[in-house]
């Protein structure tokens, strides 16, 4: 299996998945899930205090997964660190053998489990991308020369279903300018919308992995529609999940995810897919199998 950068640069349809470190030190289950994915995906994201909920740091988990044989994508947000901490973590990632970093602003602390925390946001995603570019070039953000540069493949996120879309596209352009090599999108379900987005994204020299979020049941789909900005699950899919009944819903959701991956690959809509299973990473190999991959 090629690693992320090689796969994307070779023009292969690239698959990434995601792993969320737990709160607490028992990582047996997380590692078990990650093992299931070995050899089936090109790279694996490790989330960074996802949803502003305190968990094990992304960087040490990246290292563990790299030892396991994965190519980890170090998710790095600006919520919890100022520019000093960010740069030292980036250099740390390099010496730990981490090759990819996904630059994000990060969910606000008000969404998480430490609502009284001070949000940092000394930098934000675009400036974070610039920071990585600077370190890759051997200089820190203040312009000081480094003894040894980083060599990190820079990723960013984009929300193709954002409303309004225009400011989001403008920011997409800024992220490209700031050094993003690849994008992983927020979950997409409406393929026509996504194609329209890709028509615009294709104008830039970057790789795009379509975000595929496994729907576990109709309730989850309704929840996403109601509470998660930038995600729209079409009614048709919700009806299918409902029709599948309680027992069959997850299987139906896996079918839906597999179909999406297949369409994106067969029609060459994007350069790959980022499959998010939120705790059901062990289902990812089956989804990929149904999609005709591996």
């Amino acid at each position: 299996m090629k690693k992320l950068k090689e796969a994307l640069e070779a023009g292969e349809f690239t698959i990434t998945a995601e792993c969320g470190p737990p709160k607490g030190t028992d990582i047996a289950e997380m590692l078990e899930h990650a093992k299931h994915l070995l050899g089936k995906i090109n790279a694996i994201n490790v989330t960074d205090n996802q949803s502003a909920v305190v968990r094990i740091g992304s960087l040490p988990v990246c290292r563990l997964l790299s030892e396991m044989g994965h190519d980890p994508i170090f998710q790095l947000t600006c919520r919890d660190r100022n520019r000093l901490a960010i740069q030292s973590d980036l250099m740390g990632a390099h010496i730990l053998g981490i090759k990819n970093v996904l630059c994000m602003t990060g969910d606000h602390v008000s969404a998480g489990d430490h609502k009284t925390a001070k949000p940092v946001y000394d930098l934000e995603s675009v400036q974070l991308l610039q920071t990585v570019a600077a370190l890759n070039g051997g200089h820190d953000l203040a312009g000081n020369e480094m003894k040894g540069a980083t060599n990190l493949y820079q990723g960013a996120v984009v929300t193709p279903e954002a409303n309004p879309l225009e400011p989001q596209m403008l920011k997409f352009e800024k992220k490209v300018k700031a050094g993003a090599n690849f994008f992983q999108t927020q979950a997409i379900y409406d393929m026509d919308n996504f194609k329209r987005f890709m028509d615009r994204a294709r104008k830039f020299n970057v790789k795009v992995l379509a975000g595929i979020l496994l729907l576990k049941n109709a309730g989850m789909a309704n929840f996403l529609n109601k509470f998660v900005p930038g995600i729209t699950v079409p009614q048709g899919l919700i009806d299918r999940l409902k029709a599948a009944g309680k027992e069959g819903a997850l299987d139906c959701g896996m079918d839906i995810a597999a179909e999406q991956v297949r369409i994106i690959k067969e029609q060459g809509i994007a350069d790959g897919a980022h499959v998010m299973a939120i705790g059901l990473e062990n289902k990812v190999p089956e989804i990929l199998k149904r999609a005709g991959i591996a």
């Binding site: 919520r79 675009v126 930038g230």
Partner: peptide, 21 residues
């Protein structure tokens, strides 16, 4: 902007409203 973002909306922008509230 609750995150003080200087370069455009985050993914939480929601029909003209903010994901934070």
């Amino acid at each position: 902007c609750p995150k003080g973002i200087l370069n455009g909306p985050c993914g939480g922008t929601n029909n003209g409203f903010c994901e934070v509230s």
